[in-house]
């Protein structure tokens, strides 16, 4: 139905605008590539300030953590009917191989299950091929924290 589609588009645009304006996302240089229903794709261009090992130039695992956390949160927002506050409960990241020097990292996150209180996400970080990931993550998020104190 067109009305629903329009409402969906507006909601997804709000998520995109919100994610793009998160100060730490901006500081890292994150680019919001795509926001669609229950899914988000972020890009993190290679930058000297992200380097964790100055001998090799490989970026720090923490930068990938921030990318996966931000992208997973956006996937949760993209799965919500109403944009209520959310908070990360936990995030597990498996580092599968080192990131390559000079290449941007892409994150693709899916909110694969939404319940009244909790959303469940999985995500991969990769260079060119999502089937050859650098890192894989699963996360849980508290939904609608407006009555609680641990907003995020």
């Amino acid at each position: 139905m067109p009305a629903d589609d329009e409402r969906d588009q507006l909601r997804l645009e709000l998520v995109r605008g919100f994610s793009a304006n998160v100060p730490h996302n901006r500081a890292l240089g994150m680019i919001i590539e795509d926001i669609r229903s229950q899914e988000a794709v972020f890009r993190l261009p290679y930058d000297a300030k992200l380097v964790g090992n100055p001998d090799t130039g490989v970026i720090h695992g923490g930068a990938i953590t921030a990318l996966l956390d931000g992208c997973s949160g956006a996937a949760v927002f993209a799965a919500l009917d109403d944009l209520v506050p959310i908070a990360t409960l936990d995030l597990r990241i498996d580092y599968l191989r080192p990131a390559e020097v000079g290449k941007e990292v892409v994150a693709r996150a899916t909110c694969y299950k939404m319940t009244r209180n909790v959303a469940f996400t999985r995500a991969v970080a990769y260079h060119d091929d999502p089937d050859d990931p650098i890192a894989h993550s699963v996360g849980t998020f508290m939904v609608s924290t407006k009555t609680g104190s641990s907003l995020k």
Partner: peptide, 24 residues
């Protein structure tokens, strides 16, 4: 630092910064 913020409305630190701090 202001560059660490994830939610400017509260304000609250970005979860990624806490993850990076813990790993470091």
């Amino acid at each position: 630092g202001d560059q660490l913020i994830g939610n400017p409305a509260l304000p609250a630190l970005h979860g990624g910064t806490l993850g990076a701090l813990l790993e470091s």
